[in-house]
Every structure is written in C-alpha cells, then in structure tokens.
Nucleic acid binder design. Structure first.
Lengths: 254, 254
DNA sequence: ATGTCTTTGTGAACGCGTGCACAAAGATGG
DNA sequence: CCATCTTTGTGCACGCGTTCACAAAGACAT
C-alpha cells in the first residue's frame, strides 16, 4: 500500500467519527442550497454559519474525508457536494419500505425528502387488509403477509417502522430476517436487533419531554418574582427582525 | 472585538448532564410499563435491560437525581415514576401548538404520545386559509394570522414546526417573539434563535442518510471477506463502485 | 520572484460521557 | 445479633468529541 507521496493523507484509512457522519447531511444540505444559487466556492466560515456549527469543527470533519479545500480560497461547492454524497452513499439508489401506513406512515410516504436524495419508497406495507391496494402517495399499500417477498424482490436493506409500539418488535424481527440491515424506528419502543443491524429511532414524545425539562428549568430560574401565571417571555427578544436572509449571525443552539 | 460571551455559570448550578436528561424519558417509559403490570420494585439491571442501556449508566443517571434506590432491593417503581416525571416537568400540563398542518402536522396532531404525558395540543395553526376551521384530530385549524394571540392566550411555551422548509424560520421567529422558548422543528432547515430558546430538530432525511452511510460501509466490507453471510443480500446493484480511494472523474478545482 | 494575505488542515488541550470495579448499605436468614 | 448476600452508588480511568491556536499552503499583487 506504499503509494509514495500520495496526494491524499492516510486519514481516510478507516472510520469517520460517528459525530462527523451525523453532520455530513447537514453540510450537504447547505452545500446543495449554495449549488442551486450557483455559488462556486465557499469558505469554512461561511459554510459553518449556514450549517449552524463551529467552523473549526467543520474543517476537522472535512479533514476526515480528505483534503478537498484550497487554502486561501475555500471549498469548491460542486466538488464537495459530490464527495459528501459519495461518502454518505447517496450516489446510489436506496429502496426503502415503510411499514405501518397510519397517519405517520402516510405522512412519511408523502414526504418529499425521501426521493430528493437517493432514497426511493419501494413499498408501503400495512397489517390492515382493508388498506391493501389502496394507494397512498401514489403507491399501493401491500399487506404484511408479503413483507418478506417485497423485501427480497426489491433488494431492500433499509426499513422504516411506523407501526404502533406493540407491533414494532415483531415487524422489526421480520424485516431483519428478510435481509434488512438498517431500520429507522418511529414507534415508541426499544428495538432489539442482532449485531450488524443499525437502528436509529425518532421519538416525538422523548423530544418533547427533553424540551419540557429545559422549559421547567428556565421557568424555575426566574423565581425572583412569585408569579402565578406563565411568564410570557418578556425578555429582550429583539430577534423579530426578519430581513432578507443575507448573512445571519450564527447562533449556536446549546 | 471582544467576544460577548460572558462566562456565565448559570446552567452549571445543579445541572443534570444532557445525556442523562435525554435518557430519562426512556427510563420513564420502561417504568410506566412496569407500573401498569403492577411490578412493585425493579433492579437497575432489569430496568436497564428494558430501556436498552448499560446498568452502570442507569445507576449513574439516577444518582444525579438523588438516592432513590434501596440497596439489596432495587428501585420502587411508582416512586421512581413520580421522581422522573417531576424532574422532567411532566407533573404539569404543557400546552403545545403545532404549526403547519400538512401530512406531517396532521399526523402529529393525531399522535397519541402527546396527550399521554403532560402535553396537550392547544392549537393547530396553518397558513392556508382554506384549512381554517377544518377540524384535524378533533381540533379546528386556526390561521397563522392569529398565531401571536393563540400563543399568549394559552400560555404556550412549546411550539412544534411542521411547515415546509421555506416557512420554518419565519414561523420560528414569530413563535419566539410571541413567547415560545422551546421549539421542536420537523422542517429540514437550520433554525436561528436567540439565546434562551431551545431547539430540537427531527429530520427524517438526515436519519436516512446516516443509515445509508452505515449501509454502504457494511456493503463495502463484504467484498473484502467473501462471506455472503447476509441472507437476502443477493442484491448487487452497485456494480460500478469505485474503490473507497478512487479519484473520481469529477470537477477538480484547479 | 517575492512578499503579503487569506484560509485550510491539524496538533494539542480540555471537557464530557461511558463503563469498570468495588466499597457501602441495607435486606434477609439463622 | 451476626453473617451473608444482593444491589446500589460512585471513584476512576479511558476514549471520543470539541475547541483553540497556529503553521503550512496556496492565491494574488507588485
């Protein structure tokens, strides 16, 4: 593997930090917006502001991908879009199945964010026989009985679970047995999966509870006045200015 | 320019680590399930298994709340449910507004997880005049014009944004100006908010992209070892995969 | 070519989160 | 009451992620 003086440092060896991977989609989105505005290059400072992160962090993140910047100039937008897309595996098409076509599942099926980047809704699956054949977002819903066949026929490796909590683990087991190795779980349950299967969870209730914690803490800190009502935040919120989005100062949310 | 960041130790008073706060809802859910089964006590080992975390981590998490366990026995389920609920601020009722009643907003309005734990959907708000008055999940949709009045009349401090990306920042600004200090953002945009306002984001597209990254990595590792261990991974669509190191024939900055 | 200026890439320090391992504490049985 | 057993609570070490600060690298002007 001795390539002599390679242009590329060995940082590429193995393993981009997980925290970096989680931010790459954020950078990609900001870069795509710049690309659509035909911006040729961008500095780490500008891009970091657009993505809402620290510029040093952004540079370090990119350093794991390779040296794709030009000192004194910045990053080539188009080139970086391609590199990040490739790193994330978005240059190929990922067929996805959504299981559980209730309110949430239907909303996900209609969500435009899927098709926009490499993801394609291959099938919608629901346990209700009455749903079978009924089109949602232009795709006919299929019955759970055919889950394994659908997975295999379409080569699906990513599954989205939007079922009630009680059915989630069972659906998960069937998905995994059929060959799915990545699961995005919207059901409020802890899924147990074998090694080699990735699970990410999106839990609305948990997010709200975390917000409530901070909200309570904020309310508790202002105990100077024994208010009986809710403090309607009469703080110095001078942020109502909504100019045309030029260069906004980056405020880093905690 | 001196940085305006005065090193304020306000949040460091008696802070529970953020990572712990994020897990408390998980524990609470597991404990609630035990409570419904009338289980009187639970050990850290059992509860950790139910929540899908390490038992040492769970004990350390609880140690930030206080010594609520009994050595040799475990934790009293009911008592712990109450303590965590109180810590998270769930013993009070949090009115929540949902802005943007499209597919996702409607799904959120119908989501049972809100009402189940201290959260109450106080209002649904949409910019479409045609939606006004139309009931969704039993709640009539109100127009954006009345946003400020709705917030203040109901003492809302938590807002959920489910609008298209283009409208999110504007809605966010109005929410914050009206007194909202916690925002759950479903729009694929980076929100800029003043200090003191918490923002949590839920981004389906980002989650999928993170899964795709790991999926690609898993697929790439298979080529090294000729295993074929994956049952239904006969799919080999990515025949044109350049090596992870390949210089691609793309635009290269001069 | 040379100097200056801008911006990247990264070494190093620091803080946070995690998990081990064990002493302390209390229950339980004799 | 004492011994033993179970389980908590936590000190400690380690690794990851973040941030600072700066040298290196290249663009650009002269």
């Amino acid at each position: 593997m001795a390539t002599g003086r390679t242009h590329r440092p060995a940082t590429r060896s193995r393993g981009i930090p997980e925290a970096t991977v989680a931010r790459l989609p954020l950078y990609l989105r900001a870069l795509t917006a710049l690309s659509e505005r035909s911006v040729p290059t961008v500095s780490s400072e500008e891009l970091a502001a657009a993505a809402g992160v620290n510029s040093a962090k952004l540079r370090k993140d990119f350093s794991y991908l390779g040296s794709y910047g030009t000192r004194g100039v910045g990053y080539d937008v188009e080139y970086l879009v391609y590199q990040i897309s490739r790193e994330l595996g978005l240059t190929q098409d990922w067929p996805v199945v959504i299981v559980g076509i209730g309110n949430l599942g239907a909303a996900l099926a209609n969500y435009g964010g899927f098709a926009s980047r490499g993801f394609r809704v291959a099938a919608l699956i629901d346990a209700d026989p009455g749903m079978a054949g009924k089109p949602v977002a232009g795709i006919p819903v299929q019955h759970t009985d055919d889950l394994e066949k659908i997975i295999q026929d379409n080569g699906v490796s990513i599954g989205v679970i939007a079922t009630p909590a009680g059915a989630a683990q069972q659906v998960c087991d069937r998905l995994v047995a059929a060959g799915v190795t990545s699961i995005l779980n919207f059901a409020p349950t802890v899924l147990t999966v074998p090694d080699g299967v990735d699970v990410r969870k999106v839990d609305l209730s948990i997010e709200l509870q975390i917000l409530a914690f901070h909200e309570q803490r904020k309310a508790g800190e202002e105990t100077a006045a024994g208010d009986g009502a809710h403090p309607a935040a009469a703080r110095d919120a001078s942020s109502a200015d909504q100019g045309p989005d030029g260069d906004v100062p980056a405020v880093m949310p905690a």
